[in-house]
Structures are given as C-alpha cells and as structure tokens.
Design a protein around this nucleic acid. Structure first.
Length: 427
DNA sequence: TCTGGGGTCCTAGGACCC
DNA sequence: TCTGGGGTCCTAGGACCC
C-alpha cells in the first residue's frame, strides 16, 4: 500500500432497469406501463420496470408463476434480445467514456468512472450533466452514485435510485451524515454480501451497514476471508478494489442452453453441442486465445419427477487450439462417452478452460504446419463474414439446420440496431 | 406446458518434490 | 522403536456478481 495516496472519488453509473429501458427506446408506448423481460427460453423474469417492481414481482422467478398477474395488469412481456441490449450497452459506454479518462465497464449496464482529481467542479452537477447526455444520446435513463470507494459508490447509487427527490444522482463523499445513511441500510444491500454472508452476519448481531463498517477486522478476516475485509475497509472510505480499465481475457468460456423441449436422441444432442462449441470457439478467437481443455455436460430436467441423469466430462487436448472444427470434433467424441439413451435431456453445454494467448501455445510436432495454417485462415474468414453479415451467416454443418431443440423466444423484438433486415421503419 | 446463462475470486487439502 | 519440513501446483467447493 502506498501511503498518502490521493483520496479516490468514484462514480458508479448504472442503467435503470436496463433491458426494459432498451425495449422502451424502440417502443415508447411502453413508457409508464408495467413491463418485464424474460431470460432465455422465456423462463425467468430478469428485468422489471418500476411499475412491475411495485406489484411485487421478484427477480429470477419463473414467469409462469405470474401468469395471472400478467393478465390482470396487462404487463408487457418480452423475450430477451441480447443482440439489441449488447449494442445499446456499447452506445452508453462510448458516451460515458467522454466524461473521464479512467473508466471500468463493469457489466452490460454498469460502469465505474474515476472522478479523482476533479476537484474544481461540482460533482453533483457534473453527474447530472452525464446523466442527461446519456439520456439524450441513447434514450437510456441512468442513476449515478459517487463515493470514495467502489463499495461506497454502489451504496450512493442505491440511494439515488431509491429516492426520486435526488433526481438520479447522489454523492456520499464527505457527507457528514454518512453514518446515519449506513445505519439505515441492511448488510444484504452491500455489494459483495450475498445471502450466506448476510445470514452469518445477522447471527452475530451485525445487521446494518454501519455495524459492518465498525466490525472487528480479525473476526471478518477469519470468517469472510480477505474479500470480506476489503468490503469493510471500503465502507470506511479506504479504496481497496481498484478500477480495472483494461478487459483481461476470460479464463473460462462457457456456452450452454436449456432446450425448448426435451431431447432424447444423440443426433439432436450432437447438433446442440456443436452449435454451442461454435459459439464458444468464436469468443475464444475473439480474445486471441486458444484452449487446452474441453468440457462437455448434459442434464435432464431436475424440476421434473422423472428419471434423472447428468454427467460432465473433461478432456485435455493434445494441442491447445481455437479451431471450431477441431473443438467440435473433441466435444462430440466426449459427448458420446457420457450420453445414455432413454432419458429426456433438458440442457447441454460446453466449457473451454486452460486458456492462453494463441501466440504462447506449444506447437504439436505431429501436426503439419500447413494444416494449422489452413485452419487459421478458415476460422478468420468465418469470423469476418459473421461479424459483417450477422452471426450464423456461416455455420458449421454439424450444428444442423433444423434445430428443433432451439430455445423458445416467443416474444422477441427485432434486432433493430444490428440486423439490416430488422431496422425500425419511420412512417 | 412453463424454473437462465456466464463469469470471478479465495481457501483448504492432497499430491508431489527435494 | 524412531517417521521432517518446506515449497509448489492443482482441484474442488463455496462464496459472490450481473
């Protein structure tokens, strides 16, 4: 730790009900109406408008449980449209980047901005300006919290969201009433305190955030590891979780999906596994890496009262690779080893690990150079075409073309911003 | 009928080596 | 009879995030 470090000032910008807001940008009639967005397969509620939150709809609950409520209140229901949300996210982040040289894109709908050293300006005013610019340029409403650590910026953001009178911006830095605010919040409201830790802390008489801030370091360290201790220090205004401005490459890449209906045959499982592997390999090449291990898993529907089977298999590859063809070949031969007939499968997936930069991988003496070079050229061409004309323009034949197992997405809006054929029409 | 998908970090304990 | 100590690497499992 460097002593006398400059006091950090961090803003957390968080898009309000992001997926719902994206849908509203292209369908303004949804403004002020109750709206939800569902997870893949139209399974669970993953985004809720404020109107829906007020009705008591809980995040992550299976949508069918709200069938009556949806009908009664005329709730607008949408399948998730990740192509649209990803593109809107990029627009928001590009806009934010103009307001600070140091920024971390934390998730699809959140970013930390460093305001350290911005001493001569009224931070609240500046944040309001950021907020209105984002709204004007992208149509997305955001909330901004400012604090002297990431954890406190998160706290401030929560307060900004909860209290409409703050107009979407709250600065908790050097607020003399900070302890009163912390005393009014539950430990489970804190970033990094999940269900298990919240229960544990409650059992030991630590219920409010202020109590956590004043907790004994050794007790926290012993029971919540250094991760917990960092949180406590952050609450005290000591920044311990640095801004990560460069995106480090993924250490594992997972691609998996539940099926739209149950699947019994090996042929269909092969199609899905090949399809998921193609997606995983594309992401792998996107970060200029190769993988050394392939994992494959399949599972039946655990919510159903019927014979259950699930299995997982790992193979170390003879040579690390990013070639879709090779990775599919390994995945399919492993699938064959774990497949058992006679079950109704609900989910399959693949994972790539042992990931390293592609210029660091050990070469295999037995694979002719020409063969490897060809693979690279083919993959490069495939990625380029799919980038330009939309994913799935070129596919590997093993992924099949019927794809009856595909997930359900009965209420998906068009990919307005990423597919030429789905551009919105102005009348 | 209907229950998502993709990540991170930390620790304890075992295997192995000298 | 007596059975070391220190180090590294890997893995599984548990916690968390959006």
């Amino acid at each position: 730790m460097k002593p006398n470090r400059e006091k950090q000032v961090i803003a957390l910008v968080d898009c309000n009900n992001f997926y719902v807001s994206c849908e509203r940008v292209f369908n303004p009639a949804l403004e002020g109406k109750p709206v939800i967005v569902l997870s893949n397969n139209d399974g669970c509620v993953v985004a809720r408008s404020n109107e829906v939150k007020k009705l008591g709809v809980i995040m992550g609950t299976p949508a069918f449980k709200y069938r009556d409520l949806i009908k009664k209140y005329g709730i607008g229901v949408f399948s998730s449209n990740y192509a649209l949300y990803g593109d809107m996210s990029q627009r928001v982040m590009e806009t934010l980047a103009q307001f600070t040289p140091e920024m971390e894109v934390y998730s699809i709908d959140e970013a930390f901005l460093s305001l350290t050293g911005f001493n001569n300006l009224n931070r609240t005013e500046y944040a309001r300006h950021i907020r209105s610019t984002i709204h004007k340029w992208t149509g997305i409403p955001v909330s901004i919290g400012i604090g002297s650590s990431k954890t406190l910026a998160k706290v401030a953001n929560k307060i900004a969201k909860k209290n409409p009178e703050y107009d979407g911006v709250f600065d908790i830095t050097e607020d003399p009433g900070i302890d009163n605010i912390l005393a009014s919040l539950d430990v489970s409201d804190i970033w990094g305190i999940g269900d298990q830790y919240a229960k544990f802390l409650n059992r030991h008489g630590i219920c409010t955030v202020l109590q956590l801030k004043n907790a004994d370091d050794e007790f926290i360290r012993d029971n919540m590891t250094v991760v917990g201790l960092r949180i406590v220090h952050e609450l005290r205004g000591v920044s311990c979780i640095p801004l990560e401005m460069v995106h480090s490459p993924r250490k594992g890449i997972v691609s998996s999906r539940s099926f739209g209906r149950s699947v019994k045959t090996l042929a269909e499982l092969r199609e899905s596994v090949a399809d998921y592997m193609a997606a995983a390999a594309e992401r792998l090449r996107g970060q200029k890496s190769v993988a050394s291990f392939v994992h494959v898993f399949i599972a039946t529907n655990r919510f159903k009262n019927e014979p259950q089977y699930s299995n997982f298999i790992t193979q170390r590859l003879p040579v690390p690779t990013a070639s879709t063809q090779d990775l599919i070949k390994y995945a399919l031969s492993n699938l064959l080893k774990i497949y058992r007939p006679g079950y109704r499968y609900k989910k399959a997936g693949v994972m790539l690990t042992g990931i390293m930069p592609d210029n660091q991988a050990q070469l295999d003496l037995f694979t002719p150079f020409k063969y490897r070079a060809n693979r690279k050229i083919i993959m490069g061409a495939m990625d380029e075409i799919n980038n330009r004309w939309g994913s799935d323009t070129v596919q590997i034949a093993a992924a099949g073309i019927g794809q009856l197992w595909q997930m359900r997405q009965s209420r998906k809006t068009p990919r307005f911003t990423t597919q030429w054929g789905e551009l919105p029409v102005v009348h």
